[in-house]
Amino acid sequence: MRIARFSLDGNVAFGVVEGDDATDAGPVLDIIKGHPFAEFERSGQKLPMDKVRLLPPVLPNKVVAVGRNYAEHARELGHEVPEARDAPIVFFKPSTSVCGPGDPIGYPSFSSEVHYEAELAVVIGRMCKDVPRERVKDVVLGYTCGNDVTARDVQRAESQWARAKGFDTSCPLGPWVETELDASDLGLMCTVNGEQRQLGRTSEMIRSVEDLVVHISEAMTLLPGDVILTGTPAGVGPLHDGDEVAVTIEGIGTLTNKVVKRD
């Protein structure tokens, strides 16, 4: 099931996505009663997708991101490749960094080297802490596409990554949450202006989704709507004013954003 968050005439709601662009009518949204973090009913009231504005599929309290979770990406940046037994590198992106499908990525004034990083994003569905491996599926609502946009020059210059990875619009998410998906071996691709830049599979992750949820929830309570970014494959590179960057993940869809220079 694909669950989208959208606005129409100033009202925000969730809906189940039905159909796709291949059909004559195009996809529609069946508005749900309530929210997707509890049992819900479909209203039967349907809206054409092209009549609404898609929003970030969730508004997370926190985005917990993981660094160097693909070996080839660690190598391309000149870092030592972590072992599966090593603790993953974890950092935060603030809620204000989140933007949705079609929203502009604002090129920060304090950077001259902004990179894309296509990632599988895990959406938490219920409040949880100290999650055992066998219960991870119970606390995950589903998955969406993410882009861990990074000011690479700032990341190199500063001892922590808060500004480099936490600036406004540095965390595009979308276009919706796919709730029925085995995330263990999904194809992941990033294109810039239609040209392929990244291509990988989630099976190449050093630490799996289960590993990450267990490790992160040992330290902190995860809330409904929180997001875990699981790392990016090799092929990261620069974005420029006017570029269109798209993250596509098998079984989910495509998240597209355009880069704009901030005044």
Rank of each mutant, 00 (worst) to 15 (best):
residue 18 E to A: 05
residue 50 D to E: 09
residue 61 N to I: 06
residue 22 A to G: 08
residue 91 F to C: 02
residue 61 N to E: 15
residue 35 H to G: 01
residue 19 G to A: 13
residue 151 A to N: 07
residue 65 A to G: 09
residue 116 Y to S: 04
residue 27 P to Q: 05
residue 115 H to M: 10
residue 100 G to R: 08
residue 124 I to Y: 07
residue 136 V to I: 14
residue 60 P to Y: 02
residue 100 G to E: 06
residue 140 V to I: 15
residue 122 V to D: 03
residue 133 R to F: 12
residue 62 K to T: 01
residue 126 R to I: 04
residue 72 E to D: 15
residue 137 K to H: 11
residue 108 P to R: 10
residue 40 F to D: 00
residue 17 V to A: 07
residue 115 H to K: 07
residue 44 G to V: 15
residue 53 R to T: 07
residue 93 K to L: 11
residue 125 G to Y: 03
residue 93 K to A: 05
residue 122 V to I: 15
residue 102 G to F: 14
residue 114 V to C: 08
residue 124 I to Q: 06
residue 22 A to E: 11
residue 137 K to N: 15
residue 60 P to E: 10
residue 51 K to G: 02
residue 123 V to C: 10
residue 21 D to S: 14
residue 43 S to Y: 00
residue 41 E to F: 09
residue 150 T to I: 10
residue 139 V to Y: 07
residue 26 G to C: 06
residue 146 G to R: 10
residue 95 S to Q: 09
residue 39 E to R: 14
residue 68 R to H: 01
residue 111 S to P: 10
residue 82 P to T: 08
residue 120 L to K: 00
residue 38 A to V: 05
residue 24 D to I: 01
residue 57 P to K: 08
residue 116 Y to G: 04
residue 59 L to Y: 05
residue 111 S to W: 13
residue 38 A to Q: 11
residue 135 R to I: 02
residue 29 L to R: 05
residue 156 R to T: 06
residue 42 R to S: 00
residue 46 K to F: 05
residue 135 R to L: 11
residue 66 V to Q: 00
residue 35 H to K: 09
residue 21 D to N: 15
residue 28 V to F: 00
residue 53 R to H: 09
residue 66 V to G: 00
residue 110 F to I: 13
residue 37 F to V: 00
residue 46 K to Y: 04
residue 157 A to Q: 14
residue 59 L to N: 09
residue 142 G to I: 04
residue 125 G to T: 10
residue 104 P to G: 12
residue 45 Q to L: 06
residue 90 V to C: 02
residue 33 K to E: 15
residue 143 Y to G: 02
residue 140 V to Y: 13
residue 60 P to A: 13
residue 138 D to V: 10
residue 113 E to M: 07
residue 25 A to D: 14
residue 72 E to H: 13
residue 132 P to E: 07
residue 151 A to F: 05
residue 146 G to M: 09
residue 97 S to Y: 06
residue 61 N to L: 11
residue 123 V to D: 03
residue 80 E to A: 15
residue 97 S to P: 06
residue 63 V to E: 02
